[in-house]
Nucleic acid binder design. Sequence first.
DNA 1: CATAATAGTGTATTAAATACGCATTGCAAA
DNA 2: TTTGCAATGCGTATTTAATACACTATTATG
Lengths: 244, 244
Amino acid sequence: METIIGNLSVDCVIFGFNKQSLNVLLTKRVLKDPETDETLINDYTLQGHHVMVGENVDDAAKRVLLEKTGLKNIYLEQFHTFGNTDRLKNAKDQLWIKHMYPMVSDHVVSVCYYSLVDSTLVKPDKQHDFTSWFPVADLPELGYDHAEMIKLALEYLRNKIFREPVGFEMLPEKFTLSELQGLYEAILNTEIDRRNFWKKVSQMKYVIPLDERRKTTARRSAQVFIFSKDVYERTKKERLSLSY
Amino acid sequence: METIIGNLSVDCVIFGFNKQSLNVLLTKRVLKDPETDETLINDYTLQGHHVMVGENVDDAAKRVLLEKTGLKNIYLEQFHTFGNTDRLKNAKDQLWIKHMYPMVSDHVVSVCYYSLVDSTLVKPDKQHDFTSWFPVADLPELGYDHAEMIKLALEYLRNKIFREPVGFEMLPEKFTLSELQGLYEAILNTEIDRRNFWKKVSQMKYVIPLDERRKTTARRSAQVFIFSKDVYERTKKERLSLSY
DNA sequence: CATAATAGTGTATTAAATACGCATTGCAAA
DNA sequence: TTTGCAATGCGTATTTAATACACTATTATG
């Protein structure tokens, strides 16, 4: 018999990229008054769940990801734990909690993760709950403190991507340089000079050009690259140079 | 009546600087067999405690800091939550937990913080428990997963100090340039060129030279500086420049 | 078959990081 | 009281990285 740890949950900010924008996977939360049919709650939340007794917290996050995306072994990074007593005290959230989880404490501490997926591999429509992608630049109304979580997750992701090549997690195995650039532009919300970007990437020995081209939306076909985690790990030490 | 949340604790990596080395505040953990007087446990742990019902997790960390250092309003940063089920499963730790906290679950998730203090303000000798400073480069045997915590906290601190001027939290209000440099060298475990360091610091408008000198260990007296949090906050936006 | 849109490859300029030269101060040893 | 010397104070030269921008190549489309 599995039971939950009443005061502890995980929430996952699942980032995806669809060649246009950086997106987050969200699930619709709807509650209607059973008598008047009035819509009491109609907003979105992140993917989350309580941690089970005897379950590693990291494993709880992986469980949530598997349930919501069908994917295993995807990039996952813990970024913050939200532990204020008032974080679920909003009226709508209280209503929802009483309706859905009547036995749960009202001080739930949430360990938050962000994960990076190739969103073409995720089929949220196949879920029985209403789960879909939203661009981070244009989010719907969010329940709990999930807006704050997404904001912080994005900050952590932006910091991370400067230091480590995690962006490849959100692209198919084979990609073109403009796809990679589009990803970086979407994450960092800036425009990048194409030529300087090319120069930068061509220095990275772990981004390997293939003897293969592919038609994109463009007229001219573009060269195809892959990311080699192997080469990255091997050359890691060389690149960890610090100023000061 | 205050009760604890059985599955949730906080641990604090308290960093201090004593003009020589970067230090961590640790508390001795001793257990002897009541019959044979054999020493069963003799090691050190970080400062930690369970979170109380109805208490913000951040406040629990502040409470621990106030108890162990007597200081309020000190620099505090959450950096990671350790949530593996086996993190307290070491034989010594099990023994200690059964002896000290017989009612507590054996899956305790710990939210970890690091804090930066001017260690001259902390008088650990006045504590009734055996609390003292240890250089991070030469730590004693540590209980639980606290060695891992300190290692990770140091990584986070090193990253942080590149981006934000948090080092001043560990110095007295007035300091000389060589004291500041010594601090950076201790944290980053590198040697820094004195002249380049001076150049860098003189660009920081929030490090303000005073019309005052002080004798250090040196022959010649050195100029005294203060850190202005005010000026730092005001000029923050200008400095947040991103490459790419 | 000219056009337009994206791909591919540079070079020039600016800014930052690093290396290092040298004069100054003032206590301590001679 | 003179002088060595260790640390302070202030530069310039070199290397490296970031940014700006010029030009050619390819190919779907009208």
